[in-house]
């Protein structure tokens, strides 16, 4: 069976998804950006979320990160229905996001960015030393060469900025991680670092939604791949059951592999 049915609570009693998005709808004015999408994510797995530009994958992820609450649909965390009305709600549920833009305050230093919105205080004042200490630890894990803890992140390299954004997501014991194009702006060495990190996080039991346009990255890292096309879910497939061409077919033509003709496949392979 190629196309999975979304796991319903009760159907797989031994494993409860960390996150389940059910029948999510988002519209911008008259444009239906996400129309009835259902996805789930289990502990310790990476689910690749792929699709062309405007397929709705970032919008879908933003409903989970609290940046744009859905117009309708339900979100379950550990089997419990939840309401995520803003980013704070998502973080409280252990859902962290690394945005494609990184969402850093460029004028602040790394510790201030890592703890933005969750500052450590003592006697009602910011405890910068404690935040810097924690930041040194978590970034040291990601990039041992990182030294600029007191400079505005504006002056850091792309890889270092990425490290700050990742540190912010993993420092607070995330259970689910959304990574939106995490390697799009990185060089080969830094990309390899991020890949290693994703594998490590996976082994720690964190579930990851990996949003990417790079089909090879996704095949490399994911267990399952969900393909979106014009706001709808084409399907979710197990990586081992499909070829890259078949996934490309889903992305470009919006058809599940069973409905692809040999001719279409041949054209995709070009």
């Amino acid at each position: 069976m190629l196309i999975q049915k979304p796991a319903m609570p009760g159907v797989a009693p031994q494993r409860v998804p960390i996150v389940e998005l059910r029948n999510i709808h988002v519209a911008f004015g008259g444009v239906r950006a996400v129309a009835g999408v259902t996805l789930d994510l289990y502990p310790g797995e990476v689910v690749g979320v792929v699709g062309g530009n405007g397929a709705g994958k970032t919008t879908l992820m933003r409903t989970l990160s609290g940046a744009r609450p859905p117009d309708s649909g339900q979100i379950f965390v550990n089997g419990q229905p939840v309401t995520i009305g803003n980013p704070r709600d998502a973080k409280a549920l252990g859902i962290e996001t690394i945005y494609q833009t990184l969402a850093l305050a460029d004028n602040l230093d790394a510790p201030a960015n890592v703890f933005l919105g969750r500052e450590v205080t003592s006697a009602a004042t910011l405890n910068d030393a404690a935040m810097e200490s924690a930041t040194r630890k978590v970034i040291g894990r990601l990039n041992p060469n990182f030294k600029n803890f007191k400079t505005p992140v504006l002056r850091l390299s792309g890889g270092q900025r990425q490290a700050v954004a990742i540190a912010r997501a993993i420092h607070f014991n995330a259970r689910a991680l959304i990574m939106d194009e995490p390697t799009a702006a990185l060089g080969p060495a830094e990309t390899a670092q991020v890949h290693a990190l994703i594998r490590q996080l996976k082994s720690e039991g964190i579930g990851i939604f990996l949003v990417s346009h790079d089909i090879h990255d996704v095949f490399d890292l994911s267990e399952r791949i969900s393909v979106m096309y014009h706001g709808k879910l084409v399907g979710t497939v197990n990586k081992n059951d499909v070829t890259t061409d078949e996934v490309l077919g889903m992305i470009i033509l919006g058809k599940p592999p069973t409905k692809l003709t040999q001719q279409e496949l041949a054209e995709l392979h070009g």
Partner: peptide
């Protein structure tokens, strides 16, 4: 935007 996404 980053401030809002950080929950501020």
């Amino acid at each position: 935007d980053a401030a809002a996404l950080a929950g501020i």
